[in-house]
Design a protein around this nucleic acid. Structure first.
Lengths: 157, 157
DNA sequence: GACGATTGAGTTGTGCGCAATTGAATAGCG
DNA sequence: CGCTATTCAATTGCGCACAACTCAATCGTC
């Protein structure tokens, strides 16, 4: 089959297959390598990588319901609920039912959670250096990943 | 410090910080979106996404020790051992101690595992279509991810 | 206002990912 | 040869991710 296509001079499709397979390897490897560097960088802050991502959103937005947090991070309540309980247990975050809609839970920063923002500023600097890619390359990478995610999510639905 | 740089007309560094933060979001989102599409595509085969990655390596190499499998996939025995036990339980894979070196375990395909390769060929085609990126873009993406991983791993060590 | 449908969090169960540890087999050095 | 150090797989413990489900609150329609 591969020979047939090669013989036809159009191995574009088989290239696509190989690339896709290689892409799933490299995407997974990159995510875990990224996570690994973040993990060591976040160790002093007492945060895991996913917890740090949640804190980033909260530092940006101040407070918001679990639903919005999940949309922003592409995570559902099955993941967020226990994670937020842990963040609450460490005193970084507060959770309370919205008075307007008793179904939703508003997640907000405690003073300790806000105070963590400053020491956390060192983290992306460290990662940026370790990544070793140019600004243009990082931009390209982010843009491709964003489009890939949008396309995949659209195809899924 | 950020102000100093901005005053110098070079917010390249702060751009880097923002980009890095956005990159960790998009990288995570993309990985999970990818995994989600693979999950549904692999449902009929009875494989999870990580199990599929293991099978890909085995389909390519025939058989190899757990160590090599882990190097190829950037996974350690803590992840692979239970995963391989599950693949063994479903009858796709066999595990046996190497006679040359009793420490290492050789993982090989059973006939059922080999037979799964043909129906599995439909999977990357489906993902490639859902990705919605050009061949050139996929190539660029893979290349950037590979370099990113290499750089991060080097920085980690 | 009553009621079925929908929405938002939470829980449970399964599997992945990693750090830390264990234990057995091998390699290397004196 | 004997002893230590290293290597490899497996295990344990913890946290993340997701599917499936529960339950309460809200919305829509009548």
């Amino acid at each position: 089959m591969l020979d047939d296509l090669a013989a036809a001079g159009a191995d574009l499709r088989s290239d696509m297959l190989l690339l896709d397979q290689q892409l799933c390897f490299s995407l997974n490897a990159a995510t875990r390598a990224f996570g690994s560097v973040y993990r060591t960088a976040l160790k002093d802050l007492g945060l895991t990588y996913p917890q740090y991502l949640v804190m980033l959103v909260l530092w940006e937005h101040g407070e918001l319901p679990v639903k919005r947090l999940g949309e922003r991070l592409r995570l559902d309540s099955g993941t967020l609920s226990p994670l937020l309980k842990r963040l609450e247990a460490t005193g970084l975050v507060a959770r309370e039912r919205s008075p307007q809609d008793e179904r939703s839970v508003i997640v907000s920063l405690t003073p300790a959670g806000r105070d963590l923002r400053d020491p956390a500023r060192a983290v992306p600097r460290h990662i940026g250096a370790a990544a070793g890619l140019s600004l243009a390359e990082l931009r390209t990478l982010r843009e491709l990943l964003t489009r890939l995610t949008a396309n995949l999510d659209a195809a899924e639905a």
